[in-house]
Amino acid sequence: MSILVNKDTKVIVQGFTGKEGSFHAEQCIAYGTKIVGGVTPNKGGQEHLGLPVFNTVKDAVETTGATVSMIFVPPAFVADAVMEAAAAGITLAVVITEGAPVRDMQAAKAFAVKHGMMTIGPNCPGIITAEECKIGIMPGSIFKKGHVGLISKSGTLTYEGANQVCREGFGITTAVGIGGDPIIGLSYKQLLKMFQEDEDTHAIVMIGEIGGDLEIQAAHYIKENITKPVVAFIAGQTAPAGKRMGHAGAIISGSAGTAKEKMDALEAAGVRVVVSPAEIGKAIKEVLSK
């Protein structure tokens, strides 16, 4: 079991024939992901990586039966691509692109929600169900099959966390990089619920960072609804206020969005909070050995 995607998930790639899209689609195929085609306007009818190219998402969905789209288009076209996927009946869009304008994402997300499409990202490494399906840019080899679900705003901290969990001998069910932008698709809350309901997931790692209040919302949700052990790390305890720390959304505004307030809220919700990402693996071992 896993959440959202598995070995049977049919995936298309928007921005399929571009440099990034091609490179990562190839890596995903090598991992075992069922990529069934891609979309690049004006290249419909051609073949790329041995797969059909379509002019529109609608054509791709009708012909291939794909339900998930991995999006690699340039930032200015992200909103258009997300809305096209939603209108064509895609149920999950995974947006890798960094640098999409906030106003665009606001509109695209509202449209996606209206059409019942879930979105992961933007500005994220994607989603991976270990040893079954990788939709994104993460190094597949570090994700061994196991029983820990992982949710993270940061790409490299996803790898760091998953690597430690696997080295401790536990492995991953599904890992989701939700992205570091001010407005993102799926957030901790929805994914925590999915992991709670997934029988194969025995514990959850949640990695957050400064900025916004998604981690606080998650803490409230965990307190009421999550019975599985949760280990959390919040990046940016040493970050200065008012500075954007790499990610568009990673900024302490005034006195809001600090690591401390998030760590306190999570601790109050019974979460095992670690102060360094180097402790994630050990903490998982502890909570699962209880």
């Binding site: 940061s154 901290l157 990695i207 970050a239 720390m245 790499g246 102060v275 990402p277």
Partner: peptide
């Protein structure tokens, strides 16, 4: 560091 999250996590670990 590569990656913004790990970069912050590295600062936090040094501090810790």
């Amino acid at each position: 560091v590569n990656g913004a999250g790990l970069a912050m996590g590295t600062m936090d670990t040094i501090n810790y």
